[in-house]
């Protein structure tokens, strides 16, 4: 296969995943959340149990007027949704789906790349918050910045723990080194990574930056139409990314009970959707944290736990 064809195929596959996986997760969220609340959720769009609801939503967003407030900083305001979406697209490039070459762009330091690029998302939040010329947006942006800065630390520390255990920064390498008993050994790191990841993509119960009962809709207040849809899409791609990272780092990625070589991609996808389900489940079950509780959880629970895990990992690595 010529290089350019392979490259095109890989990028097309990633774009395809980028466009379908978030929709599947979003539809699952609609349905799971509804049933957890004793409802049915969307039932009409598309005929069968409202499967096309998100497509209908997308069509609606496209038709809506694209409003930029008069007092807003136009170029920054318009650029922010794209900046919010792009990092997640880049992250999807390096997440291994299966063994061998089943990854769009194998990267020697994939883990580091992922953490660095996910961290860029906060710039988009600050851009949208400030450029909206709205005090609620600004407050949401400040909350988001404080939250993302704080939670990046436990996120990176817990990821560092598993990288240390595997002795590599490559995501495929980590999956290859993974063994079932790591589930026990790295459990605290997994919990910290997952919780910090939730906070990183601002999912409930960590959605103070958009807290609709306090801040209207936080930094997304002034957005309409397609740009707002971009922010929403970024949130759902974020779920996919965090679920995929948790899968790859802590749940053994493509390693399954049988047929790893051929069914690896299936195991990965199954695990990703299982984690995504937990993300939705947590959203339905827990109320939003208060701003001070959020910071307290981060600095007094997650950071010490992840530091302790680092020490434990280092000790076990040295002992083995």
């Amino acid at each position: 296969m010529p290089l350019w064809l392979e490259l095109t195929l890989r990028i097309a596959a990633v774009v395809g995943a980028f466009l379908t996986l978030p929709l599947i997760v979003g539809q699952t969220e609609h349905k799971v959340m509804a049933h957890m609340q004793g409802r049915l959720g969307p039932m009409y769009a598309g005929g069968f149990h409202g499967w096309a609801q998100l497509i209908a939503d997308g069509l609606k967003f496209v038709q809506k007027e694209d409003i930029t407030p008069r007092a807003a900083d136009r170029p920054v305001f318009r650029l922010a949704p794209v900046v919010a979406l792009l990092p997640y697209l880049l992250v999807l490039l390096v997440i291994p789906l299966g063994p061998g070459d089943l990854v769009a762009q194998p990267l020697d330091i994939g883990l580091f790349f992922v953490l660095a690029v996910v961290g860029v998302g906060v710039v988009a939040v600050l851009m949208s918050a400030w450029a909206s010329a709205n005090k609620y947006s600004l407050l949401g942006g400040l909350r988001a910045a404080a939250q993302l800065l704080g939670y990046e630390l436990p996120l990176v520390l817990s990821a560092a723990s598993v990288a240390m255990a595997a002795g590599t920064l490559s995501l495929s390498g980590i999956v290859e080194a993974w063994q079932p008993w790591w589930l026990l050994w790295q459990a605290p790191a997994m919990a910290v990574f997952f919780v910090a990841g939730l906070a990183e993509i601002r999912r409930p119960p960590f959605d103070m930056p958009v807290a609709d009962s306090e801040l209207v809709f936080g930094y997304m207040t002034e957005y309409t139409g397609l740009r707002f849809a971009f922010f929403l899409l970024a949130e759902y791609v974020g779920i996919v990314v965090i679920a995929a990272l948790t899968t790859v780092l802590f749940l053994g990625g493509w390693q399954g009970p049988f047929g790893d070589a051929h069914l690896g991609w299936l195991w990965t996808l199954l695990k990703v959707f299982a984690v995504a389900f937990v993300v939705i489940w947590l959203r339905v079950s827990y109320p939003r944290l208060r701003e001070d509780q959020l910071q307290r959880l981060c600095w007094l629970v997650l950071v010490p736990v992840s530091l302790g895990q680092l020490v434990l990992t280092a000790a076990v690595r040295v002992a083995l």
Binding site: G119, V120, V122, V123, L126, W130, L142, L149, E152
Partner: peptide
Amino acid sequence: QVLIYVGAVVVLLLF
């Protein structure tokens, strides 16, 4: 560079 400067330092600055 991206993680520290773009993701953290500039964000603090903007903050």
